[in-house]
Simulated scan of single mutants.
Amino acid sequence: MSANALYTDLSGYYDLMCADINYPAQSNGVRRLHQLFGNQGRRHLDLACGTGPHIRHFIDSGYDSCGLDINQPMLDRARQRCPEALFTRQDMASFEFDHPFDLISCFLYSIHYSAGIDKLEACIKRAHNALTQNGVFCFNAVDKNRINNNLYVSHTTEHDDSSFTFRSGWHYCGQGDQQSLKLSIAKTTLEVTESWQDEHAMVALGFDDFDRLLRRYFDVHIFEHDYEKIIPWDGVSGNALFVCVKT
């Protein structure tokens, strides 16, 4: 399959793939961080919004939300989930809106979908320009230097008389600015199993690199990857939440 084939062709399975994600906790966690560090505004943009589950929770919490994604089938599903939100097909590195935002979020490590360091910085710059004063850009990231290539996460769920097993893991070769997210789906129906494999190329940075890049534009705070607690990053763990304030 091509680099984005699974994401595109199996978009109907995306919500099943993410069935173990605690969307309320993630959305509420970022909302709390915005309340602590932001300007109390309610205009929200979600980058790489997928089928819109995070946006649903932000709207229900009183935000005026928009979402963007490069994948039209994902956006079609997002519009069904959140008909009151504005969704647009745009690239994170070149997006434009005719009004500013108070909060820009990017969940599920999607910041890494930037095609190289230059594209990542373009995304960061776009986010900065799109925010109001004291607006917040919040995302989660993985440190390339702390990736364990042998570590995978998986879950199994039932749907339409079939059993689905989803498996994903990071891979980094140890040098350069490219890492990959390896994905697989196994679908079993009446004891017959079909399998799909895919690998998404993603930009790779260490957290020191992220921090240096972000500080050109933002006041940066790094926290442990825990949406239910606000704990400063310990400098060791390989996953973190970045809270970037436009000052």
Rank of each mutant, 00 (worst) to 15 (best):
L205A: 10
D211A: 12
D208T: 00
W170C: 13
D198H: 13
G206Q: 01
L181T: 07
T193G: 02
D177P: 06
S184N: 09
S180C: 14
H221D: 05
K187H: 07
M202W: 06
A186F: 11
K182D: 15
D208R: 00
W170L: 11
G174M: 02
G176C: 13
A186M: 11
Q178P: 05
Q179G: 09
E224T: 08
F164Y: 15
H221A: 08
V203M: 12
F223V: 04
S184D: 12
Q197K: 13
F210P: 01
L214R: 02
L214Q: 02
F218I: 03
D208Q: 00
D209M: 01
Q197C: 09
Q179T: 11
H171R: 13
D209P: 02
E194A: 12
K182Y: 12
D219Y: 05
R212G: 06
E191G: 01
T193F: 06
F166D: 07
D177A: 11
D198I: 08
R215Q: 15
H225Q: 05
F207S: 09
I185V: 15
V220H: 03
K182A: 12
S168C: 12
L205I: 06
W196M: 11
T188G: 01
F166W: 14
T165G: 05
D226Q: 04
L205R: 03
F166K: 08
L214I: 03
F207M: 10
A204L: 05
W196T: 00
E199D: 11
Y227N: 05
E199M: 07
E191N: 15
L190V: 01
L190I: 01
T189R: 14
S184G: 14
F218D: 07
T188L: 01
Y172V: 10
D208Y: 02
G206S: 15
K187D: 06
E191A: 13
F210A: 07
Y217L: 07
E199I: 09
K187S: 11
Y227D: 04
K187W: 08
F223H: 05
F207K: 01
D177F: 08
T165L: 12
L181D: 11
T165E: 07
D209V: 01
R215N: 12
T193W: 06
D208C: 04
I222G: 04
Q179M: 15
T188F: 03
Q178W: 02
G206E: 02
M202G: 09
D177Q: 10
Y217N: 09
H200S: 14
F210W: 02
K187V: 15
G174C: 06
W196K: 14
F207D: 04
F223D: 06
H171I: 09
L205H: 03
Y172L: 11
T165D: 06
D208N: 02
F218M: 07
S168L: 10
S163P: 03
D211C: 10
A204M: 04
E224L: 07
Y172D: 07
Y217G: 07
Y172C: 09
W196P: 04
G169M: 08
L183C: 13
G176R: 04
G169V: 10
L181Y: 14
I222R: 01
G206F: 03
F164C: 05
E194P: 00
S162K: 13
G176I: 05
Q179Y: 02
Y172R: 09
S180N: 10
F218G: 06
